[in-house]
Deep mutational scan, measured.
Amino acid sequence: GPREVTMKKGDILTLLNSTNKDWWKVEVNDRQGFVPAAYVKKLDSGTGKELVLALYDYQ
């Protein structure tokens, strides 16, 4: 199956793709996968990378 990404509340993840309104593709610890968009919030990183903050645990 697809590689699952797990996250804990407060984690910072790299946002790869947010074109789908329900599932965003993120990368964390060299793993890529989809997380519910409602579970993360975009951060203003000030760099080229888009980052998101995990609002809830997800696994």
Rank of each mutant, 00 (worst) to 15 (best):
L53W: 05
T6F: 15
Y56S: 07
W24V: 05
T6V: 14
G46P: 13
L55H: 01
F34L: 06
T47C: 13
E50M: 14
T6W: 14
K41M: 15
V26P: 00
K8H: 08
A54L: 06
L13R: 01
G46D: 14
Y56K: 13
K9E: 05
V52T: 01
V5S: 03
K8G: 03
Y58Q: 02
D11S: 05
E50H: 11
K42P: 08
K21S: 11
K49H: 10
S18F: 06
L15N: 00
T14G: 05
Y58C: 01
Y58W: 14
V26M: 01
Y56D: 06
Q32S: 10
T6E: 09
L13V: 06
V40P: 01
R31A: 12
G33V: 15
K42S: 06
Y56Q: 13
Q32A: 11
K25A: 08
V52R: 00
N17F: 05
G48Y: 07
E50S: 14
N20A: 06
G10D: 04
V52K: 00
Y56H: 10
T6H: 12
K25C: 14
V52H: 02
G46F: 11
P36T: 03
D11W: 07
D22Q: 11
F34E: 04
Q32I: 15
K25Y: 15
D11F: 04
P36S: 03
T47I: 12
L15V: 06
D30M: 09
D30C: 11
K49S: 10
K49V: 13
G1S: 12
F34R: 03
T47L: 11
Q59F: 11
D22C: 15
D44W: 12
D44I: 12
G46Q: 12
E4L: 15
W24H: 02
A38C: 15
R3N: 13
K42Y: 07
V26H: 00
K9W: 03
A54Q: 01
D22A: 10
D57I: 04
V5E: 02
L53M: 14
E4C: 15
R31V: 15
I12F: 05
K41L: 13
K41P: 02
T47F: 12
V35R: 01
P36I: 05
V35F: 02
G48T: 09
K41A: 10
K9G: 04
N29F: 08
A37F: 03
G1Q: 13
V40G: 00
S45V: 11
R31M: 15
A37H: 03
G46M: 11
E27Q: 13
N29P: 03
N17D: 15
Y39M: 10
N29A: 09
D44Y: 13
T14E: 06
L13I: 06
T14I: 14
L15F: 03
G1L: 12
V28C: 10
E27T: 06
A54H: 01
K9A: 12
A38P: 06
A54M: 07
I12M: 05
L13N: 00
T47N: 14
F34T: 04
V40I: 06
V40A: 02
G33K: 04
R3T: 13
D57N: 09
Q32C: 12
M7L: 06
S18D: 13
